[in-house]
Amino acid sequence: MYTQGLDSLGKDCLGDSAAESAALEARFQAKIDAEEKIEPKDWMPEAYRRTLIRQISQHAHSEVIGMLPEGNWITRAPTLRRKAVLIAKVQDEGGHGMYLYSAAETLGISRDQMMQQLLSGAAKYSSIFNYPTLTWADVGAIGWLVDGAAIMNQIPLCRCSYGPYARAMVRICREESFHQRQGFEIMLTLARGTPEQKRMAQDALDRWWWPALMMFGPPDAQSKHTAQSMRWKIKRFTNDELRQKFVDVTVPQAEYLGLKIPDPELRWDEETQHYRFGPIDWGEFERVLAGHGPCNRERLEARRRAWEEGAWVREAAIAHAGKRGQRGVQAA
């Protein structure tokens, strides 16, 4: 009901004349330029709404799919403290998925619709979660690198022009930075542990480094959405800017851990005061996005199975609520 109301609101406000619509659009952009937030009931261009739905739902899906590779180690966490911390982390990710689905719902799409888009393969999610977690060190590497990269991406989103998304991100970023520290702490423990543990940590870095760099998306020259998203202040920095920031922050951390970044071309550039890094294999990125990563099939299969096997539970909950409602009416 609420979402339909939003749709009609958009159409009514569009008005008949092109001049009127141009005026609305100008007012909308002026608001954004003045750093004011756009709220669900405000008029917004259809393309802005669509862009946000795509971005927020992808983000929500990434949180939900992201529960799987780490969840893979809950039953095998090496200590009770690590087990508890990992459960809490995976639970936080589910919570992030929920706020983000709610934020997207304010734009006129339902959680069920988004879920169907995910399960049918129509919606995308972060390519990183299509890589396997083979050892305990991968749990550390995901926290350190993947959550680290996510924070780089997400901190600017706290200032995103769309109010509900920006507010969701404030809370999410706080939790992500906690996760990142926990991941680093796992890596540190391994790096200072036995030779076998250190080898485990290096192997995880070797496997996660390049996919983590790919998380920032295609290079600016090839990024379809960047320019418009920056005008709308959905995005504040380009993919390449954020990637560079991530590399600059992470390389010294790897050195502190005594681990080697798997990039023979990596070096400090005095002139630019940045690390220069080797070429990213965008062919791999495209393949993973197209569904041909190591775990794409398994990840979606796990979500579909959970959805299908849970159908009878959801049906029962609805049936029971119906019965209760009816009894309430009869009693009244």
Partner: peptide, 21 residues
């Protein structure tokens, strides 16, 4: 803990995780 990520709804992933914790 085996359930987390595989429950019938996201709310139940969180509910079971809470109890597990």
């Amino acid at each position: 803990g085996e359930w987390i990520g595989h429950a019938p709804a996201l709310e139940e992933d969180l509910g079971l995780a809470n109890i597990a914790l």
